[in-house]
Structures are given as structure tokens and as C-alpha cells.
């Protein structure tokens, strides 16, 4: 395995490239989801009556963007337009702010000495944003969606915080670059698999995705998505994919050794690993059932939280010994 070079901060202008890259990753996530939906429709056991609205497959993100951009924007009576728009547009902003601290190979836009906490603060922003997206429409269904997300957040946030702290404890630093450097001999996924799994589950949860998408559940007419159409819906859906992509990208420096890998340059390895994690997170949607937030609370606090604390204990003992 080649030696990992230290992370260097590049000019702030590269933030544009980071945004484009995040857009491409989010689009490929949406495209992969479209392919899975297409396969389910054509090859699956579904009765013919369910096969309405065929998926566009890999072209889904383009087709959906074109469709939603031409669609009229819905407004509702006495909507809190300000908070609604902040919530809808904010998800992409939160994802963009997350990727500023994620190194691509050895380049990073912002080499913050508290990069891990920065990522954490941005995912907490999502609490407020999703709730505002639910509140703003002045509609019962979307408000219930917003409340569901906060209830779910109370269950996933503490395990997520400890899952983020675990690599930082092993590296002895909150700087993402130091966490990557600390994995030069052994990737953290080996010593802290539990923290990795909890981190991935939490990314799915703060992206309102798959088993944790009850805030946008079909039982409440789409919840936070119930009243949004046109460009608003596009921003909200794109924000979810962007959050998934940013979360998957953050797993790479934290647990998967950053850009380390044979043959390919380190930036390419970062992208390959990100796409692999993103693909798994996207696919989870069709494998696991929806979890109600009120049922999530007990296992999250009774089982997951003590388990992740044990994980930190083990990692702390390992790093004290070495």
C-alpha cells in the first residue's frame, strides 16, 4: 500500500469544483435508484396494475429534473413561505457545507482543525431544515412529516455523534486529515466496524431515506413532500440525494482510509469508495422495511447507544495500548 501523503488545503475557488462533484455524485445516486426501480418494475413479481409510471432507469435524474422544472410551483393557504423555502433549499446547502471538510485524495477545501465536529453541526442543521420544510406548507400531513423527522433525529443523533467521535479518538484529533493519516497502516473499518455501521445508518436517517423515510411516508401522503411541486420538489429530492452522497463521502476519510489504494491515484480511490458506499445506501431502500420513529427510540437508546459506547471503550483501550 502506498504511503498516504498529508492532506493539503487548496484555494477556496475549488469549492466550485467540490459543488460540481457533489452534484455528479448525487445525480449518480439518483440514476442508480432509477435503475433499481426499473429492474423492480420489469423483472419483479409486481402485478401489471402496479406498473404505472415506468421508471426512466439511469436517466431518471435528468427526466425528473426536466419534468419538475416545467411543473408549476404549488402554494398553499397561509403558508409560512420564508421558513418553507429555507427548509426546502437548505438541504443542498447543508450537504455542500459538509463536503467542504471532506478531502478528495489529498486535497481539501477547508482543512478545519475541528472538521469532524463541523460535519456533525451540519447534520444537526438538517433537523431544523426538514422540520421547516414540513411546517412551512401549513398542511397537516407535511407538519406530521416534520415532527416525525425530529422524533427520529432524537434516536439517531447521539449514536451518530459517538460513531463520529470513535475515529477521532483513535486518531487523537478532530481534523479530518489527521484521521486519514492515522489509517496509514490499518483502516478504521477494521477496528471499529460497529461505529461504521451506525454512521452509515445515521446517514440514511438524516437523508430521510429508505427505512428512515417515514417523514416522507406514503401513509401521510408524502409528508414533507406532500405539498411541494415544481422546483421546490426538485430541490428537496436533490437535497436528499446530496445528503446521502455527502454522508457516503465522509465515510471514506473516517473509516475507509481516505484515498489509500493500489494503482489508481488517491482522488480516484476516494471517488470509487464514495460511490460504493453510496450505492449500498441507495440500495438499502429496497431491502429494508420502514421503521416508525416511535419504535426506533427504544432500540436506539437501549441497544445502539450502549453498543457504540462499548465500541469507543474498545477503541480507546486499543489506542492507549499502542
Amino acid at each position: 500500500m502506498p504511503m498516504i501523503e498529508p492532506v493539503v488545503q487548496v484555494s477556496p475557488l475549488w469549492v466550485v469544483a467540490a459543488a460540481v462533484l457533489l452534484g455528479i455524485l448525487a445525480m449518480s445516486g439518483a440514476a442508480f435508484n432509477g435503475v433499481l426501480a426499473r429492474r423492480e418494475q420489469t423483472g419483479g413479481p409486481l402485478p401489471a396494475t402496479v406498473r404505472t409510471g415506468r421508471s426512466a432507469g439511469a436517466l431518471t435524474p435528468l427526466v425528473e429534473t426536466a419534468r419538475l422544472l416545467r411543473q408549476r410551483r404549488r402554494s398553499s393557504i397561509a403558508a409560512d413561505a420564508l421558513l418553507w423555502r429555507i427548509g426546502i433549499g437548505g438541504l443542498i446547502v447543508a450537504a455542500l457545507l459538509m463536503v467542504t471538510v471532506i478531502p478528495l485524495g489529498r486535497w481539501t477545501v477547508a482543512d478545519l482543525n475541528v472538521g469532524v465536529v463541523w460535519f456533525n453541526a451540519m447534520d444537526v442543521m438538517v433537523w431544523a431544515l426538514v422540520w421547516m420544510a414540513g411546517w412551512g406548507a401549513n398542511s397537516a400531513h407535511s407538519l406530521i412529516g416534520g415532527y416525525r423527522f425530529l422524533a427520529q433525529a432524537l434516536s439517531y443523533e447521539l449514536p451518530l455523534m459517538f460513531a463520529l467521535i470513535t475515529p477521532a479518538v483513535a486518531a487523537g484529533s478532530l481534523r479530518v486529515g489527521d484521521v486519514v493519516a492515522a489509517q496509514s497502516s490499518l483502516w478504521f473499518i477494521v477496528t471499529m466496524p460497529v461505529a461504521f455501521l451506525i454512521f452509515c445508518a445515521s446517514v440514511v436517517a438524516f437523508s430521510v431515506w429508505g427505512p428512515f423515510s417515514s417523514a416522507a411516508g406514503s401513509d401521510i401522503a408524502g409528508g414533507i413532500l406532500a405539498e411541494v411541486s415544481g422546483v421546490d420538489r426538485l430541490l428537496l429530492l436533490a437535497g436528499r440525494y446530496a445528503l446521502l452522497a455527502a454522508g457516503a463521502a465522509f465515510a471514506v476519510p473516517m473509516f475507509l482510509g481516505g484515498g489509500a489504494g493500489p494503482v489508481l491515484p488517491d482522488w480516484a480511490w476516494t471517488l470509487v469508495k464514495t460511490l460504493l458506499v453510496l450505492g449500498v445506501l441507495i440500495a438499502v431502500r429496497r431491502r429494508l422495511p420502514l421503521i416508525r420513529p416511535d419504535r426506533l427510540a427504544v432500540p436506539a437508546w437501549m441497544i445502539v447507544l450502549p453498543v457504540v459506547l462499548l465500541q469507543i471503550l474498545v477503541v480507546s483501550l486499543l489506542s492507549v495500548r499502542s
Binding site: A121, A128, L150
Partner: peptide, 13 residues
């Protein structure tokens, strides 16, 4: 950063 994190969480709840 931790002030921003805590306050957003607190205000959301």
C-alpha cells in the same frame, strides 16, 4: 462550532 451545533439542536426541539 459546538455552540452552533448545540443551539440548532436545542432550537429545533
Amino acid at each position: 462550532v459546538i455552540t452552533i451545533l448545540m443551539m440548532m439542536m436545542e432550537m429545533a426541539i
